[in-house]
Simulated assay, not measured.
Amino acid sequence: MAKIFIETERLILREIITEDAEAFFAMDSNPEVVKYVGTKPLTHISQSVEMIENIRNQYTENRIGRWAAINKEDGKLVGWSGLKLIKEINNHKNIHDLGYRFTPEYWGKGYATETSIAVLNYAFNEMKLDQVFAYADVENDASNHVLRKLGFEEKGTFIDEGDNCFWYQLKKENFTK
């Protein structure tokens, strides 16, 4: 049974498990879903299985990783949201990065904001973090809108996987959700 970390009004955020591979493959094989993430659409379910193994290793090694977002109404995996410890990025070391990804049928429903608020509350209140970082492709208007709405402060741009990205920081004292 997958460990549940957080429940929001509409979603359950739980650990990602091997049984999620089909849903992850359906999401990450869609070119629109991965358009701004610096990777090509997946072509085989084994790639999803490998990704899930990597995330599960992060749970053990870093005590944190992205979580599956499950719709309470029908039990379907609608995407993922959560924190990831990144060892080095944009001249920063050992930072906690907020990220999220959802299948297109769930876009525009506020799930990124809903899960991010819950994850940030977890980060600041349970993990006792002082700050959380995030980044998004400069052309990803939806994701940049969510991060700004959450109170993240834009700190500049950098190149990640060949893409120009905004770099964001949110300090605990500036989080008011």
Rank of each mutant, 00 (worst) to 15 (best):
G38K: 06
G108K: 06
P41C: 08
E32W: 05
T8Q: 06
A112Y: 02
V49R: 12
I70C: 10
I45G: 11
E19W: 02
K76Y: 12
N94S: 12
A123Q: 04
T60I: 15
H96V: 03
R14V: 07
D28E: 10
F152Y: 02
T60M: 14
A2T: 08
G99W: 02
A21T: 03
A136V: 04
T115V: 09
L120K: 03
W67M: 12
N90Q: 06
F133E: 01
G65P: 01
E161S: 14
P104D: 08
E161H: 13
N174C: 05
D97W: 00
I86W: 03
N125R: 10
G99T: 05
P41F: 08
K155R: 15
T43R: 15
A118L: 08
E73Q: 14
F5S: 04
F25H: 04
G79F: 07
E7K: 14
R66K: 10
R10V: 06
F175K: 01
D163V: 09
F175N: 03
N144H: 01
D141G: 11
L98T: 00
A123F: 09
A142M: 09
V49E: 14
C165T: 02
D141Y: 10
E114V: 10
Y168S: 01
R10I: 04
K171Y: 03
E15V: 04
Y36G: 00
I95W: 04
I4P: 05
P104T: 10
F158W: 08
Y135V: 03
A142S: 13
K109V: 00
K172N: 12
N57K: 15
A134W: 00
N90A: 04
S116V: 11
D20C: 11
Y106W: 10
Y135N: 06
N54V: 09
I86G: 01
H44E: 15
Q47F: 08
E9P: 08
Y122G: 02
K76C: 13
R148I: 13
N174P: 01
T39W: 13
A2E: 13
I64V: 15
S81L: 09
I70Y: 11
